[in-house]
Simulated assay, not measured.
Amino acid sequence: MFAAIASGNPLQLSTEVPNSNNLQHTIVLSSTKPKSYSHITTFILPNVTFPAEFAGTVYFKLSPAEEFKFFGYLSAEKPSAIFKVRMPNLNVSAATEPGDGLGEIDMDDEIPGEASTSGNISEIIIGISIEPIDQAILKAQELKSQQNPPVSSTSLVVARGNPTAVTNPGELAKMYPLVTQQLAARIVKHAHNYLTGFLDPQGNVPIKCFDNWWNKFKSRLQMDAQFLNEVTED
């Protein structure tokens, strides 16, 4: 029903927890070996029809002995989530803002049994529980309302960092590299769709047409940036 993939590693499918009536699933990323950081994507498989009134709440832990910690949810409207992984001994502190999955799993302390200089994670366990979507949204809101919770040893903390600290495109791209790529691709595609209507026989476009597109694009962006979700990158 679900799957996860860590960058540089193969796709791994979920398995149903025995006697859970198909309501609980786990994914073990035992071959995950990121460098200083990596990305983990969780998603609902394309052939699965997920009921709109339910959500798959997503939990993480680093070993079977730990308790799962909630980070967000998957649903019919949000079938995937991306997490950035920070490695141990980086001594990173970050604010907490979960919910959409575009955040960080911050492993701030050394993992028991792992050498502090190894730079690898031996195992990440993902738990997904199917629950009413109202409960999932409530959990996400409660987690989002927590400000700077204490980070215990080997805990995983979803963090975006401070969005007000982003002052230029480079910082934004560094914080959200995948989303930045998607944004750039959609802006380019939007410009291409507009400008192809003004091609001359030689395949050129007057610069005035580009200026017109840019002015219209900026105006629409201010009114409703959600229109970019409708632009396909292909």
Score class of each variant (00 low, 15 high):
Leu143His: 11
Leu62Pro: 02
Ser152Asp: 10
Leu138Trp: 02
Gly170Asn: 15
Thr232Ile: 03
Thr196Leu: 08
Ile5Asn: 02
Ser63Tyr: 08
Ala159Lys: 06
Gln222Ala: 13
Gly72Thr: 01
Glu104Val: 10
Asp106Ala: 08
Ile40Ser: 05
Lys35Leu: 11
Ala81Ile: 02
Ala225Val: 02
Leu90Ser: 08
Lys61Val: 03
Phe198Leu: 02
Gln146Ile: 15
Asp134Arg: 08
Ser75Phe: 08
Trp213Ala: 03
Thr57Cys: 07
Ala185Ser: 10
Val48Pro: 01
Pro132Trp: 09
Lys61Pro: 04
Ala3Asp: 04
Pro46Glu: 08
Glu114Asp: 14
Gly203Ser: 11
Gly203Lys: 13
Glu16Ala: 15
Lys35Gly: 12
Ala165Leu: 12
Val58Gln: 03
Glu131Val: 15
Asp224Ala: 06
Glu142Asn: 15
Phe70Met: 04
Asn215Asp: 12
Thr232Leu: 07
Phe70Gln: 05
Phe60Gln: 03
Val151Ser: 11
Ile133Ala: 03
Leu62Asp: 03
Lys174Ile: 01
Glu66Ile: 00
Asn193Ala: 03
Gly72Gln: 01
Asn148Met: 10
Pro132Asn: 09
Asp100Asn: 14
Ala136Gly: 04
Leu23Ala: 13
Ser75Gln: 07
Met175Ile: 08
Ser7Val: 04
Gly197Trp: 04
Lys208His: 09
Phe2Arg: 06
Ile207Ser: 15
Thr96Cys: 05
Asn47Glu: 14
Asp134Met: 04
Pro150Ala: 10
Ala6Cys: 14
Phe217Pro: 01
Ser36Tyr: 14
Ala115Phe: 13
Ser118His: 07
Ser155Lys: 02
Ser93Tyr: 09
Gln146Trp: 01
Ser116Glu: 13
Val188Glu: 07
Ser122Trp: 06
Phe83Asp: 01
Glu104Leu: 12
Leu228Lys: 00
Gly119His: 10
Leu228Thr: 01
Glu230Tyr: 05
Leu74Pro: 02
Asn19Arg: 14
Asn19Gly: 01
Ile121Ser: 08
Ile5Trp: 01
Thr232Lys: 11
Ser155Gly: 08
Gln202Ala: 15
Ile82Phe: 02
Val92Ile: 14
Ser122Glu: 12
